[in-house]
């Protein structure tokens, strides 16, 4: 039926088409205006909707922090575990229940500062989990202390004159440890991020996506990024997509004129922990 002559207006509604995948009764969520975490959640939900894996096979594990709250907003089986330990929890879950699609979504402080050792060893073992690491360059929830991802010279509550340490170059670290899938996107690159998440679900082994995300209220307030739009400007001006980038040069400085390199950097097939484990089980005579 034709609607010709109708005045088109925005329609006021109370539910979104993806509400069946979020705990809508807890919305609006706790994140600040302009925080990138809601967009990370949106991309994850879109990736799930577009993936061929049934919703009841997806599991989310988060640690502590603003990012850690994601586990409480997905309408999936989800676990909010101790600080720094979601990767350890996820490894156990995947080993016991290999039929599940296990995804860790947690913060930079949680996963590579407090929980850095689990990160390193899970990649070395090549356990088949997805890690979506939200890097806002800071310990957000506890009051904006610097951590291992804070760029050299960036300010924070514990580095008011500038961070005196260079940060982790996470794609290089994960690639060096043998991860079969390594990507980095920002929350501005929503479709690319959701595509990368979909790819990560298909990977047999450890899949890392580093997600650069605005924290205008925390990190941003110390570093002239006080509003979401300041981050959008930063991303538009500095991001370069290069899937075959030299990862030695992929560290993030946030200095003007120095690029933030994005892409699906590593996509390769590697034997996973579960292959090694099968071999051992066979030798031990535990498998018929």
């Amino acid at each position: 039926m034709s609607q010709k002559g109708l005045v088109i207006k925005e329609k006021i509604v109370s539910e979104s088409p993806r509400d069946h995948l979020i705990r809508k009764e807890r919305f609006p969520h706790i994140w600040c205006p302009g925080c990138g975490l809601g967009t990370v959640l949106k991309c994850y939900v879109e990736a799930i909707a577009a993936s061929s894996i049934p919703e009841d096979k997806h599991v989310v594990i988060s640690g502590i922090g603003c990012t850690g709250r994601i586990a409480g907003y997905v309408r999936l089986d989800s676990y909010h575990v101790t600080h720094g330990r979601p990767i350890a929890f996820a490894e156990g879950m995947k080993i016991v229940r290999p039929d599940l699609e296990v995804t860790v979504i947690s913060g930079d402080g949680d996963l590579v500062t407090i929980g850095g050792n689990h990160f390193i060893h899970a990649i070395r073992r090549n356990v088949d989990i997805n890690v979506f690491l939200v890097n806002n360059f800071i310990y957000g929830m506890t009051g904006n202390q610097m951590g291992s991802t804070t760029p050299l010279g960036a300010k924070s509550s514990t580095s008011p004159y500038g961070c005196p340490e260079p940060p982790f170059n996470l794609p290089l670290l994960a690639a060096a440890l043998g991860a079969p899938f390594v990507a980095r996107w920002t929350t501005l690159h929503t479709r690319q991020l959701a595509e990368a998440m979909k790819k990560a679900f298909q990977v047999k082994g450890f899949a890392l996506i580093e997600i650069i995300s605005p924290c205008p209220v925390g990190f941003g307030s110390y570093n002239e990024l006080r509003e979401g739009k300041d981050y959008i400007k930063l991303f538009l001006e500095n991001c370069i997509v290069d899937h075959s980038a030299d990862l030695n040069k992929a560290a993030i400085s946030l200095r003007p004129g120095e690029p933030i390199i994005l892409g699906n950097f590593i996509q390769r097939e590697m034997p996973s922990y579960h292959d090694f484990e099968l071999e051992v089980f066979k030798k031990a005579g535990w498998l018929k």
Partner: peptide, 10 residues
């Protein structure tokens, strides 16, 4: 719709 952190517009 994709960028909205609040699932508030589609």
């Amino acid at each position: 719709e994709w960028i909205c952190p609040e699932f508030a517009i589609f």
